[in-house]
Amino acid sequence: MADEALTSMPKVGRPRREKRDKPGPLDYMRRWPLQLMVGATLVFLYLPLITLMVFSFNTSRRNVVWQGFTTDWYVKAFNNDSLLQAFLNSLTIAFFCTIFSVILGVLAAVMLWRFRFPGKTAVEGSMALPIVVPEICLGVAMLVFFARVMPWPMGMPWPLNLGAIIIAHISFAFPFVATVVRARLSSFNRELEEAAKDLGASEWRTFWDVLVPHMQPGLIAGALLAFTLSLDDFVITFFTAGPDTITFPVKVYSMLRFSVTPEVNAASTVLIVVTVILTAIGLQVQNNLSKEKKA
């Protein structure tokens, strides 16, 4: 009984939420014009994606009318060797891009956070450039770079033949990681680092045992960002990819030009599901970390 009395007590600090009958003056989410607006926006954002996923199960070749349920298009997509290869290439590129981007991004963030050095403003500005430069400009720059300045050797065995694309992806992904990690570092108490050093820890020990654990949520967020940026990229890959280094988006692009069958829908649905799962994992990991911090 006592428990019940405790739980039914109004929570302090949030009295407005207890009254369900009438929206408070600032409860904009409970007013119909805004509810309508939010609802319409979500329909606008999701209707095309849901349609795409639903029609991947359609028996008709054309995406127009629903005729019946089938999983044939998935079988077809999974038996399409070039599509599968493109998917594998994309995942491999994203994997290597993530590893290198996290390493470079962490180093860049720590450098800008820890040191004062001549030309710091210039370095900081140049690090922000890959984030703001239009994709198309970076794409053509990479095309010219790998065509004239540093040709990537032809006929390398897989996955080395993907090197040029991986390099291009790292170049635009690691500044994003640096930004995320640096935001995390700003909440770090520098005295902890000094204390570790006073107690005899080496530079490396301090970095690994003091700084890295603090950066962990930033590292995870940065890694997820790098992975999705790489998996998502079409324009830069389009300019660096050769005939034997097709990635998933480039392959889908050529399929769209050639003929649109529900096979494209099936392949896209697989990628959407992969993205949703990755996002869910990322959110879960971050939730667990923040719970650990509180406990």
């Binding site: 095309p48 349609t51 995406n63 999705t228 996002t279």
Partner: peptide, 14 residues
């Protein structure tokens, strides 16, 4: 987070 190309393709059908 969803692929830009896929979103554009989805819009065509609508």
């Amino acid at each position: 987070w969803t692929n830009l190309l896929i979103r554009t393709f989805a819009l065509i059908a609508v």
